[in-house]
Simulated assay, not measured.
Amino acid sequence: MATTCNEEMTDREGAGFAQTFLTSGAGVLYALLYTVLSAVASQFMALNSQAGIPGLQLMFLVKLVQTLAVAFFLPFFRPKLTTESGRQSLLLVLSTILENLGSVFQYMSFIYVVPGIAFGIIKGSMPLASACIGFLFLKETVGVVDGFGIVLNVAGVAVVASGLITENTSSTQHLTASLLLPFAATFSRAPNLVISRSLIGVQKVSVLTVLFYADLAGAVVLLGLTYWLETPVWAMSAQTVGCVIALCLCVCGAQFATKLSLKTEKAGITATIKTFTIPLAVLLDYVVQSEFPSLLKFGGVVLIVFGTGVVAVYTWWKHRKETLHKEFMESLDFNK
């Protein structure tokens, strides 16, 4: 009998530890899920572009699938689709605009530079931008350890950018696009992270509500831009169709993962953890496209990855400590 009780207690303790582990790192895990899906999506974007599918058309298809996915979940979760104030409406409009601009700039950059290097610039520079904007508008501060990780990220971005410039063998126009598009993505996505954090994490607006307006507006606008600026290609081979479907599903999953991460994590922390996309994209560049960065670019990537690791581990440890403290205080139950 005593043995049975001990086994039950051990099982409960094990289940409690697993629950604490997942709860403490939920935001981190969602951000890490984003890194995997986004790195894979970048390769499909590059492959589809090489197959002759225009970039804006690809982004339209992505937004269309995202809109359909959100519409599928709406009847189940029934989120409130209206805002509660004029300020909230303004933030929702800004989030919609910046979400679509960031997506277009990010995925268009993969046409001019391999995804690993493009992500090196985008994800490496976002933590500093997100942390600064988050401090200005949400008064969210970053600790010493997190700040150290962000500094390493910025140093890594500087090294990667200098590698692009010194090793450039293409035209000046191509080099300019290789640098400007990733930085444009950064300065669209960084403020959007902060706005999304404010809406989802602070004001408790539903993830589905934020995505509904962003994806619907993006699909409509991108369809018009596709016919205005490009010549759409609708006749595709079976392999290309498969790559397009895989791209849409990966980007859709990555978008949901980002927004869910922002429910519990600060914008600067989420942006820092998402830089794990870089080593994954570099690895896939080598596997899929037989491209590997030079020693200079690789050194910058290593700096970014190390800075990301510091922030990710410290963030999970801090949340786990807070969760364990809360559970301990509840177990004392002073009201009894």
Rank of each mutant, 00 (worst) to 15 (best):
E13V: 05
V154Q: 05
D11I: 10
A158R: 01
A254D: 02
T23I: 07
L223N: 01
K63R: 12
L64G: 02
A190E: 05
V205K: 05
V282P: 01
L222C: 04
G163L: 09
K63C: 13
A238F: 08
L136F: 08
L61Y: 05
V65S: 07
A257M: 05
T20C: 09
T35S: 11
G253F: 01
V145G: 03
G143P: 05
G218K: 11
V302G: 01
E99P: 00
S237A: 14
G147T: 14
L222D: 03
F17M: 11
A214R: 06
A131N: 09
I117R: 06
L128H: 04
L47C: 03
C248I: 13
A235M: 06
P79W: 10
G309R: 03
L47P: 00
S95Y: 02
H319P: 00
V113R: 04
P191I: 12
F44N: 08
T275P: 00
G224I: 06
V154Y: 02
M59E: 08
V207R: 04
S109C: 03
V114I: 07
G268H: 09
A184C: 07
A217F: 12
Q239L: 11
E291V: 15
S95T: 08
K321F: 03
L22W: 12
L91T: 00
S237L: 14
I245R: 05
S198M: 10
M108S: 13
Q88E: 15
K274W: 03
L81D: 12
C252D: 10
Y30N: 09
G307S: 04
T67W: 06
T323L: 07
V302N: 02
L223Q: 06
L324S: 11
K336P: 00
A185R: 03
T315W: 01
P75V: 14
L179S: 07
W317Q: 13
Q203W: 09
S125L: 14
T82Q: 09
L199T: 09
A185L: 03
F44T: 10
G102E: 05
L68Y: 02
G14P: 00
I97L: 11
P293H: 08
A161K: 00
L37Q: 10
K139A: 09
V310I: 13
K274F: 06
